[in-house]
């Protein structure tokens, strides 16, 4: 693995070739917000919060999908970037019906956190107030579309880690929505294994355990690294070469 050197916020740093900019930036102890990206899931570049300035191009690039390269010069917190991040958060808060005070994730929500961190203390745009359902048909979990920010972590984890691909996105634009199977109630989904990974990776209160009320929901992401490490080290492969897992 070749070592590369570059500058981040005018500091000289070194990293490993092939590393994403996001990983490298966070390794330096610099906090960079991400709402769609989650370590262990495929980078997507959708939320645009991790955009950084790269000297060689006039375009802003998402740190999560950009590979670090020798000689890059990066700015992570210019006035413009911070302003744009704040605006993106405002857009998200205005898009659906986020009412932190009555949310299961109040106090632990990534969206709420990022707003507080960046100092987004009010939204200047129209609240769009869309009419969105809450699906409580599943035995163990609920999905409240009012709190969904369309990060699609649930889609990604269900596909790439659980292998069920129960979740996907329907429609397009502001009318997009995450769905289970043929947009059927989650409870009747035949592909869902009820593993709950989607609930754990959801950054907001959109996916939650059934029965949890205001500020009660706690989520953990660490299972993801655990599974992926195990896969990488082939911990579940038996001596005779057959695998013991599902299928």
């Amino acid at each position: 693995m070749a070592v590369i050197t570059m500058t981040i916020n005018d500091e000289l740093v070194s990293g490993v070739e092939g590393q994403s900019l996001l990983t490298l930036i966070r390794e330096q102890g610099i906090e960079l917000p991400t709402l769609c990206h989650l370590e262990g899931l495929e980078a997507r570049g959708g939320c645009r919060l991790c955009l950084v300035e790269v000297q060689s191009t006039h375009r802003l690039l998402p740190a999560c999908t950009t590979t670090a390269q020798e000689g890059m010069a990066i700015q992570t917190h210019s006035e413009r970037l911070v302003r744009y991040r704040r605006m993106i958060l405002e857009l998200l808060f205005a898009e659906r019906n986020h009412v932190c005070a009555v949310c299961v994730m109040n106090g632990r929500c990534e969206l709420q956190d990022e707003a507080a961190k960046i100092g987004m203390d009010h939204v200047r745009y129209d609240y769009l107030v869309p009419e969105l359902p809450l699906d409580a048909s599943h035995d163990k979990f609920i999905i409240d579309h009012n709190r969904c920010i369309l990060c699609t972590r649930c889609v990604s984890v269900c596909d790439s880690v659980e292998g069920a691909h129960t979740w996907d996105v329907m429609g397009r634009g502001v009318n997009s929505r995450v769905i289970t199977d043929l947009n059927q109630p989650w409870g009747v989904s035949r592909s869902c294994t009820s593993c709950g990974k989607c609930v754990q990776v959801c950054p907001t209160g959109a996916l939650a355990n059934k029965g949890s009320t205001v500020a009660e929901m706690v989520k953990r992401h660490d299972f993801l690294q655990w599974i992926l490490d195990g896969r990488e080290k082939k911990q579940w492969v038996m001596q005779n070469g057959g695998s013991e897992g599902r299928r």
Binding site: R44, G45, G46, C47, R48, I88, L91, L92, A94, E95, Y125, D126, L128, I149, L150, V169, G171, R172, G173, V174, N175, S176
Partner: peptide, 13 residues
């Protein structure tokens, strides 16, 4: 398409 926030919500605003 709805993938990125600025286009999805920004255009609506």
């Amino acid at each position: 398409c709805g993938k990125c926030v600025p286009c999805r919500v920004g255009t609506v605003q």
